[in-house]
Amino acid sequence: MIAVIGSSNMDIVFNVDHFTLPGETQKAISLDFYFGGKGANQTIAVAKLSKKPVFFCSCLGDDEYGKEISKNFENFNIEGYTIEKKELTGRAYIEVDKKGENRIILFTGANDKIDKEKIDMFLNKYQNKIDVCLLQNEIPIESVEYAISRLHEKGIKIVYDPAPVGNTNVGILEKVDFLTPNETEFRFLCEKISITFDESKMDKAVIKFKEITKVKNLIVKLGDKGCVYLDENGKTEKVSGIKVKAIDTTAAGDIFNGAFSVAYEETNDLIKSLNFANKAAAISVTRKGAQSSIPGREEVFNFSF
């Protein structure tokens, strides 16, 4: 079984002509509301692509957004989350421009209540059923680090998306089975440990990063250019991407991680899992929204390009 520890948000999306400049006011083309949050995005992706129940350690507020999100979780057989009294559900305010690129401001809300106690309660209940657990950085970083340590102790495979990247602790990465930054996040992590990042020499940076951090497997997501990976045996290779007409890249990385985890749990094959993840993410960027853009299992298997 697959579990996720992470955030749940309501995404409030402004579709705009261009990213709003400092001091500028512009009229939005449209306003949409979508279920979101990196943790919830990955959870719904796992649920849709595996067609199995998912265990999710997350916190919702006791407001209308929280009630709507909870109903959505029930529809996908997701369990393990809690409702926090007198708290507001997390929100993400997102600008999406005409090129499909996005810019996001987070209000964490109830996500900040995901603490060591909640993680202990969650793992004590579900840990014997969990094979793979996904994590991200939209909850308190001390909770992320604590969860990684506990999961590592139990021998549960960890898929860690270091986003938002700013407070990632590189000292704990040796306990991570799969680290999945995008190119921007990987550049930041390299600079954090004094590795010179050169896009044209990605392989060298990947090897040096693994050598220093001792992360087991490193997967650098490159959008429509695919991904570069370095596995625990020292093999490095690029997996080709898929060119599609993107209209909204929101949650593409989350869908990649969810799809990768589903395929890896089923096949234990890194290349097959990365190709499955690339397909799922490519389909998602052709649609608006976060969870609303997640494809179904058969759709990914039947996808041709």
Results as ranks from 00 to 15, higher is better:
Asn124Val: 06
Gly100Asp: 02
Gly109Asn: 07
Leu106Ala: 11
Asp97Gln: 14
Pro140Trp: 13
Lys113Cys: 11
Val144Met: 09
Glu145Tyr: 04
Ser149Met: 13
Pro140Ala: 06
Asp97Arg: 09
Lys85Gln: 13
Ile141Gln: 05
Glu117Arg: 05
Gln127Leu: 04
Lys116Met: 05
Glu145Leu: 03
Gln136His: 10
Gly90His: 01
Glu145Phe: 08
Tyr93Lys: 00
Thr82Arg: 14
Val132Leu: 11
Ser143Glu: 08
Gly80Met: 00
Ile105Leu: 11
Lys116Cys: 03
Gly90Pro: 07
Lys129Gln: 15
Asn124Phe: 09
Ser143Leu: 10
Asn137Met: 11
Gln127Arg: 07
Lys125Leu: 11
Ile148Lys: 06
Asp112Leu: 14
Lys118Thr: 03
Phe122His: 00
Ile119Tyr: 07
Asn102Cys: 13
Leu88Gln: 10
Val144Ala: 07
Ile130Trp: 10
Tyr81Trp: 14
Ile114Ser: 00
Met121Gly: 10
Glu142Gln: 09
Phe122Cys: 03
Tyr126His: 13
Ala92Glu: 09
Leu88Val: 01
Lys99Trp: 05
Thr89Leu: 04
Asn124Gly: 13
Ser143Asp: 08
Lys118Glu: 09
Ile130Arg: 04
Ile104Asn: 02
Asp112Glu: 14
Ile130Leu: 12
Phe122Asn: 02
Val96Glu: 08
Leu88Lys: 09
Leu134Asp: 08
Gln127Phe: 12
Ile94Cys: 05
Glu84Met: 15
His152Met: 04
Leu151Trp: 11
Lys116Thr: 12
Gly109Lys: 04
Leu88Glu: 08
Lys85Met: 10
Thr82Val: 15
Asn111Trp: 05
Tyr146Met: 08
Glu117Gly: 00
Ile105Phe: 06
Cys133His: 05
Phe122Val: 02
Asn102Glu: 13
Tyr81Thr: 02
Asp120Trp: 09
Ser149Asp: 14
Gln136Lys: 05
Gly90Ala: 12
Val144Phe: 02
Asp115Ala: 01
Cys133Phe: 11
Tyr126Glu: 06
Ile94Pro: 04
Val144Ile: 05
Asn102Ala: 13
Phe107Arg: 00
Gly100Arg: 02
Arg91Asp: 08
Glu101Cys: 10
Ala147Asp: 02
Asp97His: 12
Gly80Trp: 00
Val132Gln: 01
Glu138Phe: 00
Ile83Met: 09
Ala147Gly: 06
Phe107Lys: 01
Glu101Tyr: 08
Lys85Pro: 06
Ala110Ile: 02
Gly80Gln: 07
Pro140Glu: 07
Gln136Tyr: 10
Ile130Cys: 05
